[in-house]
């Protein structure tokens, strides 16, 4: 699947218009990326309300920092980079509140979409297996699979080359298959 961002960044024009002072362009960027940013943040911050707060913070930072956006990466990569930084910062500030939330989250939530997974138990097992991945592999896998980023964008966010992103993705998938044994097609 060829991604649009590899050919032309569809957000570039919006970013330029916003830099030129058009506030409506920023609102459009928010509408376009709020869901993606929220989902990314939500993987770090384990409470919906907190994820919404952090998402709001991400866009406020983007609003203030648009002058520093150089255009070397896509607008989406730039926003997701801010999202990762804000999430990690939030986690540092709320360190004591997190472990219980993670444990609860891994077992209870995430209702299963019919026909996609055999059961909620499988879903929970798979999520638990993802948490066991080395940080780099986990980041690459999540950005690729859940955020649907190109390997080029993944590499930008993971601070590595595109080739390294591809290799990390391979080992993440392989390790998940090892962890889950034969129950997931391994």
């Amino acid at each position: 699947m060829e991604r649009v961002s590899d050919v032309l960044d569809p957000d570039r024009e919006l970013a330029e218009r916003f830099r030129a002072g058009e506030r409506a362009a920023f609102d459009q960027l928010v509408r376009r990326h709020q869901q993606g940013v929220w989902r990314l943040v939500r993987r770090y911050v384990k409470r919906d309300a907190d994820a919404a707060d952090v998402t709001q913070l991400v866009f406020v930072r983007a609003f203030k920092g648009i002058g520093g956006f150089r255009g070397t990466a896509s607008v989406r990569s730039w926003l997701y980079r801010i999202a990762i930084n804000c999430s990690l910062s939030w986690l540092r500030d709320h360190r004591r509140e997190q472990p219980a939330e993670i444990a609860e989250d891994a077992i209870v939530e995430a209702p299963v979409a019919p026909g996609k997974l055999a059961s909620g138990e499988d879903s929970a097992r798979l999520r638990a297996a993802i948490t066991q991945l080395p940080p780099k592999q986990k980041l690459v896998l999540e950005l690729r699979v859940f955020d649907d980023l190109s390997f080029k964008e993944v590499a930008e966010l993971a601070d590595c080359t595109e080739n390294t992103a591809k290799v990390n993705f391979h080992y993440a998938v392989k390790k998940l298959r090892d962890i889950l044994g034969g129950s997931h097609g391994g």
């Binding site: 928010v30 939500r42 299963v112 097609g185």
Partner: peptide, 30 residues
């Protein structure tokens, strides 16, 4: 085949959490 199956399982995972009211979030951000 095994690799493809694993990736499909991952992609089929529903997003975590319950999505917020997007209009309300937009208003908050604005």
């Amino acid at each position: 085949a095994g690799t493809r199956d694993m990736i499909q399982q991952l992609r089929a995972l529903p997003p975590e959490g319950t999505e917020p009211d997007w209009r309300a979030l937009q208003a908050r951000i604005a």
